Measured scan of single mutants.
Amino acid sequence: MLDDRARMEAAKKEKVEQILAEFQLQEEDLKKVMRRMQKEMDRGLRLETHEEASVKMLPTYVRSTPEGSEVGDFLSLDLGGTNFRVMLVKVGEGEEGQWSVKTKHQMYSIPEDAMTGTAEMLFDYISECISDFLDKHQMKHKKLPLGFTFSFPVRHEDIDKGILLNWTKGFKASGAEGNNVVGLLRDAIKRRGDFEMDVVAMVNDTVATMISCYYEDHQCEVGMIVGTGCNACYMEEMQNVELVEGDEGRMCVNTEWGAFGDSGELDEFLLEYDRLVDESSANPGQQLYEKLIGGKYMGELVRLVLLRLVDENLLFHGEASEQLRTRGAFETRFVSQVESDTGDRKQIYNILSTLGLRPSTTDCDIVRRACESVSTRAAHMCSAGLAGVINRMRESRSEDVMRITVGVDGSVYKLHPSFKERFHASVRRLTPSCEITFIESEEGSGRGAALVSAVACKKACMLGQ
């Protein structure tokens, strides 16, 4: 009897593995994704193909990295998701002549009506938060230079001027797309009239992360975010950046690689679950690469896999709870928690219980395998993109072996128990001629924006502006 049951459990697990095998990517698959990513990057950089390229390769006008001589107080704003952060950054000489960066910050959550109302409502709310922060720190009387981390696709015309191309991540505030974001912020500050600010720089969160990590390690020339969304930036040779005049030196390019796949480059790798996630998203047909990796989508992918296993009578005796059938019910943090389970399955059992399920031991094991399959594919897909960037940098610099540091931020990278190990191992397999160091950014977005502002202020002083 026991043997029969054991055989049935083994057969069930084997069927589960057959279904989950769809998520496995072979090294040849990853090399294919990497080569296609490089081709799209090239198209994004070139003037004649930029418009139709899915990977936009947006110039950021960040050319210099901090040298350690900029000092002063800077205000930093960070808008990239449902939370908005205001930070005071003091850049100065530390002990023994070292450079020191001290920060104080406060988080504000953005109400739904500000995210989806008008641009005026959104930026009025942001300036209200700045006003509140300055009151708390008794700094209303000071006109501070301000660095703005704005983590949406922007076409820069200068370091302090950028046109919002399109909202992502659930934002829909009308009247912002096609307009200068810094102008919208300046107008809102003017409307309030109770404080003055000098907006000197606007950067993407990947750029802010790279600059913040450069402060720790001067070989950091790539910034990457794996959180709600997924994106990367890197220092490109100016001669390859056709959208900006000049051939000397390097400029940081914001790849906006989340949109890779929007022209069909990933079609052969998309599964039924991916198509369902895409169809029910706020932007169907867009940001397809990001939807395979980002935390906004990972939990939902797992939920759809679990429903398939229920329908195949391989999980929960073929019956799903009402909660499990509800879109968004299986949160991405559950994926991390399930994979963090120590082996007694308590954590998995508790999560499934909150979803109205009474799982068996085998159910718990199957749910864990589903989570591992989805998150491992995410790590491997992400590795193909980064390997594409790094191999490109090595080739354009004609280096036999390139040493490089990548600064990384984002909740999936930082909080998932195995993502970074799987990701690092896969990147290294795909970049055999590179020695890569990964560092995690601390308060990256805010500190990085302030350091970019410090560079901009120093330049302005040198130019006598």
Rank of each mutant, 00 (worst) to 15 (best):
L2C: 02
A6W: 09
R7N: 15
R7W: 14
E9L: 12
E9V: 09
A10H: 15
A11P: 15
A11E: 07
A11C: 15
K12Y: 15
E14S: 13
V16I: 15
A21H: 09
E22V: 10
E27Q: 15
E28G: 10
K31R: 07
K31L: 07
R36V: 06
R36I: 02
M37L: 02
Q38H: 03
M41I: 09
D42G: 09
L45A: 09
T49E: 04
E51W: 11
E51K: 15
A53S: 13
V55L: 13
L58M: 07
L58N: 10
L58S: 13
P59A: 03
V62M: 00
V62A: 02
V62F: 02
S64N: 13
S64T: 15
S64K: 15
T65N: 10
E67C: 11
E70Y: 07
G72P: 00
F74V: 02
S76L: 01
L77M: 04
G81S: 15
N83T: 15
V86R: 00
M87K: 05
L88C: 03
K90H: 04
V91L: 06
V91K: 02
G92S: 08
E93F: 14
E95Y: 12
E96T: 10
G97W: 06
S100E: 10
V101F: 03
T103C: 14
K104Q: 04
Y108E: 11
Y108T: 04
S109C: 04
I110A: 12
P111Q: 10
P111L: 07
E112S: 05
D113N: 09
T116C: 06
G117S: 06
S127Y: 06
S131N: 14
F133L: 04
D135S: 14
Q138S: 10
M139Q: 11
M139G: 07
K140Q: 07
K143F: 02
K143R: 06
K143A: 05
L146F: 15
G147H: 03
F150V: 12
F150A: 15
S151Q: 06
S151I: 04
V154S: 13
I159Y: 09
I159D: 07
I163F: 12
I163Y: 09
L164C: 11
L165I: 09
W167H: 12
W167Y: 11
W167S: 14
T168M: 07
T168K: 15
G170V: 13
G170I: 14
K172D: 03
G175R: 05
G175P: 06
G183V: 04
L185S: 01
A188W: 03
R191I: 07
G193I: 09
D194A: 10
F195V: 04
E196W: 08
E196H: 06
E196D: 03
E196P: 08
M197F: 04
D198G: 01
V199K: 03
T206A: 04
M210K: 00
I211H: 00
S212K: 04
C213F: 09
E216S: 05
H218Q: 03
E221I: 01
E221Q: 11
G223Q: 00
I225T: 02
V226T: 02
G227D: 07
G227H: 01
G227F: 00
T228G: 07
M235G: 00
M235A: 00
M235T: 04
E237C: 07
M238H: 13
V241H: 01
E242W: 02
E242C: 07
E242G: 01
L243V: 00
G246F: 09
D247V: 01
E248L: 07
E248K: 03
G249W: 03
G249M: 00
V253D: 00
N254P: 01
N254T: 06
N254F: 02
W257P: 03
W257H: 04
G258S: 15
A259D: 10
F260L: 04
S263M: 06
E265K: 15
E265D: 09
L266V: 07
D267T: 14
F269V: 04
L271A: 01
L276W: 11
V277H: 11
D278G: 06
E279R: 13
S280D: 10
S281K: 13
N283Q: 05
G285D: 14
Q287K: 15
E290Q: 09
E290K: 15
E290S: 14
I293V: 08
I293S: 13
L301A: 10
L301D: 04
V302S: 05
V302G: 01
R303E: 02
R303Q: 07
R308Q: 11
V310R: 07
D311E: 12
D311C: 10
E312V: 03
N313E: 09
L314P: 01
L315Y: 02
L315N: 02
F316H: 07
F316Y: 13
F316K: 02
E319D: 08
E319G: 14
S321L: 10
E322M: 12
E322H: 14
E322D: 10
Q323I: 13
R325W: 12
R327L: 13
G328F: 04
G328T: 15
A329F: 15
E331K: 13
T332V: 11
R333W: 05
R333F: 04
R333G: 14
Q337Y: 03
Q337P: 01
S340W: 08
D341Y: 02
D344C: 10
Y349V: 03
T354V: 09
T354G: 08
L355K: 05
L355N: 01
G356R: 03
L357I: 04
P359L: 08
T362E: 13
C364M: 02
R369Q: 08
R369M: 04
C371L: 01
S373P: 01
S373D: 09
S373G: 09
S375R: 04
T376N: 08
R377P: 00
A379M: 08
C382P: 02
S383P: 00
A384M: 09
A384E: 00
A384G: 06
L386Q: 01
L386Y: 02
A387S: 08
V389I: 06
I390W: 01
M393A: 14
E395Y: 14
S396K: 15
R397W: 03
E399L: 06
V401T: 07
M402P: 10
I404R: 10
I404Y: 05
I404C: 11
T405V: 01
V408N: 08
D409I: 05
D409S: 12
G410Q: 08
K414A: 09
S418I: 14
R422M: 12
V427N: 07
V427P: 00
P432S: 13
C434A: 13
I436W: 09
F438Q: 02
I439S: 08
S441G: 05
S441E: 03
G444Y: 14
G444F: 15
G444W: 08
G446L: 14
R447C: 12
R447T: 15
G448H: 11
A450L: 14
A450P: 12
A450H: 12
L451I: 11
L451M: 08
L451A: 12
S453E: 14
A456V: 10
C457N: 11
K459V: 12
K459T: 10
A460M: 11
M462G: 12
G464E: 13
